[in-house]
Amino acid sequence: MGKIALILALVIVAAATLFLQPEHAGLAIHPMDQFEISPLFGHGDISWYTPTNVTAWMAIAVLCIILLLVVGTRRRAIIPTRTQSIAESAYGFVYKMVEDVAGKDAVGFFPYIMTLFMFIVFANFLGLLPFSFTTTSHIAVTAILAMLVFLTVTIVGFVKNGTAFLGLFWVSSAPLALRPVLAIIELISYFVRPVSHSIRLAGNVMAGHAVIKVFAGFAGALGMFAFLPIFAITAVYALEVLVAFIQAYVFTILTCVYLKDALHPSH
């Protein structure tokens, strides 16, 4: 089965290379065009409520999540079906992560963290479909996600610990002379968190998609030898599948780490 699919793919690639030559072979690389936001209907301006491709792909992500987690588990079977099994392992994966990393008292935040994880995972994987739009490649989206985490962590930290939360910045295990310096560094790193948190996700996703597009541009330019960049695209795509999951995992686990800081600020 796999062999047949591989041979078929190679034949298609060869045929495409032979018959679908670009009209004027040239390096026409637009790696960023895929991230453009356009209204779904018409060509007007984009105001805050206009349904755009962002809306469409976010809706598809929501639909997929509902299909997996709600429809997939509708039978509540003791011996799970395949879909239910996936839903349960996603649940167990995130739940265990929250419990292990953030602590048992962070279980109350589990639905919130699960929301983040499921959204990022589905947005990343849907973005890997050809002709799709990757919502998580936009810094606006990931910045909001990261800011939500940042605000949650800060507010929870102050609500749960009061001013003791500031102990997070006062490294009591360090020598006394070093502590003010460390406090400044910790403070800066605390405020850089949402920046790195958001740019890591958006940057990774964007970089992979852009690289694929760059290679696609090479393929268009190379004519007969297009199979070389196409193999490269395949390899990068495999890496991207991995990255799509790992970035969602990293985003979630960092959320848990920050949450642990908020719940237990002592160093």
């Binding site: 936001i37 984009i46 805050w48 755009t52 962002v54 959204f119 989206v141």
Partner: peptide, 14 residues
């Protein structure tokens, strides 16, 4: 210019 749009739909989604 597209940020309010994205943020709005992201909030709805979340």
């Amino acid at each position: 210019a597209t940020f309010p749009n994205q943020i709005f739909w992201l909030m709805v989604t979340l």
